[in-house]
């Protein structure tokens, strides 16, 4: 093993290893495979069960084709309600997120303001929006108001946090220069903070609108308004051809939204 003092012989070279065996990784992969086998036996997952499931799935697909657009009035009404929930929740959520994001930014707010505000935002983030929607349905009753409120909460949890992070990355030199002119807090925001973050803010808002549109199709399942309610009712009545029509309409709506927001994003660049 005196490789440093003398040139290694060919026998020594053969014994050297270029890549050390990673035993912890090998053991971890083996354990994962063993757990997967054990878990599927616990859950009763077998090839027979899978084959049975595939058969059922085939039947369902069969009953979904062709999609039934006869009740298009009901479909359109639900879609429009989802759209309204999404737009309204985005607008209110963004309007509330702007001040919250500024207050939560640790480079602009003292810790005793940013700390509690960050906690509020974290609470908004921590619960899944369907759970929040259920809470609102119980608290303020069935309908679009509950769905809108739930998505407002979800929007705050998401974009207020992104706003705060964007503000924490700004150049404080520009802020210092505007402060030095004798500008107060609101003028510093308008002249030194917002110009640095505006284009990113608009990007976040478009993303949130996209995501609210998707989410607004689901809150109806727990009774919080929108196309989700219609979808759930159709499932319960085994109207699978109407279900297929609803799903196609949702997909079309989301695609449309993606295209529009993509265009807007490109125009802003």
């Amino acid at each position: 093993m005196s490789a440093t003092s003398a040139p290694p012989s060919s026998a020594d070279a053969a014994r050297r290893v270029a890549f050390a065996p990673n035993w912890p990784m090998r053991l971890a992969l083996l354990a994962l495979a063993a757990y997967a086998v054990w878990a599927s036996s616990q859950l009763g997952l077998s090839w027979g069960r899978l084959a049975h499931g595939l058969g059922e799935g085939g039947q369902l697909l069969g009953r979904m084709v062709p999609p039934n657009f006869e009740r298009w009035g009901l479909l359109l009404e639900g879609l429009l309600e989802s759209l309204q929930i999404a737009v309204l929740a985005s607008a209110v959520g963004i309007a509330l997120s702007l001040p919250l994001g500024v207050l939560a930014a640790r480079n602009l707010s003292p810790w005793w303001i940013s700390g509690p505000v960050r906690a509020v935002i974290a609470v908004c983030r921590s619960l899944h929006y369907v759970i929040v929607a259920i809470l609102f349905v119980k608290a303020i009753g069935f309908g679009a108001l509950a769905g809108t409120a739930a998505l407002v909460v979800a929007s705050i949890g998401f974009i207020a946090k992104l706003f705060a992070e964007a503000i924490e990355e700004i150049s404080m030199k520009q802020v210092e220069a505007i402060r030095a002119t004798g500008a107060g807090v609101m003028k510093v925001l308008a002249y030194a903070v917002l110009p640095q973050v505006a284009s990113r803010f608009i990007g976040f808002c478009l993303y949130q609108l996209d995501s609210n549109l998707r989410n607004s199709t689901l809150v109806g399942i727990v009774g919080a308004g929108g196309i989700g309610g219609t979808l759930f009712a159709a499932f319960k009545r085994f109207d699978y051809d109407f279900v297929a029509a609803i799903l196609l309409a949702i997909i079309a709506l989301i695609f449309l939204a993606e295209i529009i927001s993509g265009r807007v994003r490109a125009a802003l660049r």
């Binding site: 150049s171 030199k173 520009q174 210092e176 220069a177 505007i178 002249y191 110009p195 640095q196």
Partner: peptide
């Protein structure tokens, strides 16, 4: 470093 607001 001038400290102009770059995007204005």
């Amino acid at each position: 470093e001038y400290n102009l607001v770059e995007r204005l």
